[in-house]
Amino acid sequence: MARFSDDMLSRAKELVSLYPDPRSATIPLCHLAQEQDGYVSDEAMAHIAELVGSSAAEVQGTASFYDMLKLEPVGRYVIGVCTNIACMLRGAYEVLEDAEKVLGIPVGGTTEDGLFTLEEVECIAHCDHAPAAQVNYRYFGPLDDESFRSLIARLRDGELDDEVPPHGTLIRVRREAPPAIPMTEIDRERAGDQE
C-alpha cells in the first residue's frame, strides 16, 4: 500500500537508532509496516531498505522468511485453524471444511469484504482446547461448526474488538520509552561490580 506515514516514520527512526547496526532494525520495521497496512507492502519494503541501508531484495528476503509477516494483503482477521494431531483427532478438518463453507473461501483466501483470511496451521500449543484456532494470534477453542459460526458473527459485529485488534497491530497502548541510560554510567556500574 504505502510507505511509512509521518507518524510511523518517526517510530521507525526511533527503532533504527536503538541498534548499533541499522540493519538489525529490519524485522521490527517489518512489524511496523504490518501494523500500518495490515501487511508488508512492496513500497514499505523499499522504504525499510532505505531506512536500514540495505537493498529492497534483502528486506524481501528477510520478510519472506517469516510466515507471520504477510507480503500480500490479508483480511482484518487472519484465522488459523490448527490441523495438527491433537486437533485433527478432535475434528479439526471438519472445522476447517466448515470454515471454508461459512466464509466462502478456500484455505489461503480472503473474503471479498476484506474481513477474513483463512489459514491452516500446525500446532499452536492450544491442544488442551482442541480443535483450536487463532484469530490474529488470539486463541479460541474448542470449536465445532456452531461455535465457529458464532465466532465469525461476533468478529463481524465488532463484539470482540477489544480482544482481537486488526491484523498487524503490535500494541494498543504505546508507552514512552524510558530515558536511555548513558553508556558511561553503565560502564561505571560494571566497573563498580567488579571491585
Binding site: A57, Q60, S64
Partner: peptide, 10 residues
C-alpha cells in the same frame, strides 16, 4: 556490492 538478488521464502 549490489545485493539486488537474494533468497526469498524458506
Amino acid at each position: 556490492g549490489e545485493p539486488l538478488i537474494d533468497f526469498a521464502g524458506r
